[in-house]
Amino acid sequence: MTAAHGLSFDIAHMLAGGLVLVSFMMLYQDRLTALLHVLGLHAFVLSLSVAWQAHIQDAPGLYIAAGIALGFKAILVPQALRRMIFRMGLHREIETVGGIGLTMLAGIALVALSLRVMLPVTVHADPVAREDIALALSVVLIGLLTMVTRRNAISQVVGFMSLENGINLAATGARGMPLVVEISVAFSVLIAFIVIGVFLFRIRERFDTVDAVAIDSARGGQR
């Protein structure tokens, strides 16, 4: 293995690890605007990672995926969510996340779990893809954790977006994955975003809030 190869592996790992790190940042943001900035950063790191994968895999198609990630996920979606927050007047809202320390500990445990699960399974896989997939799984799990620990519907959407980013990372890390899959993953996020956005406005029209707890009490459910 040449030195250049080693460097390209290291950069790939650094970017994927950076994505996990940004996921952790997302866990403790209790202000919605800050959360959206982190989401933009998350998608930006993802697009860098995808672009690097395109470079080392010699797959020009992946540049398109990186472009989509940058354009849609890093700029368009956070901007749109930001406008939504301002129109709904939520930008000053502070939501209680639950104990930050506890959530961070849970996140660390999730990363450990995904490494423990993925590394033995993928012994025979390409080493780049192997660690990429392990890290991607931790991004997915932390995204899910974000969704579970949030009360506000918009921050749940943000958690969902970061979860999708993790799936995207896994898809690009695997060599030879058809481009169609990557692009459709990227677009599915966009469509999900549109649908969720429409729903959020409908919900707000009806209930004057997007706090999931208030919505549930209107439905007659238990907290």
Partner: peptide, 13 residues
């Protein structure tokens, strides 16, 4: 049948 979205997500998680 009557849980909050968050709890359903929690169950999945």
């Amino acid at each position: 049948q009557f849980l909050t979205i968050r709890r359903y997500l929690g169950l999945v998680f």
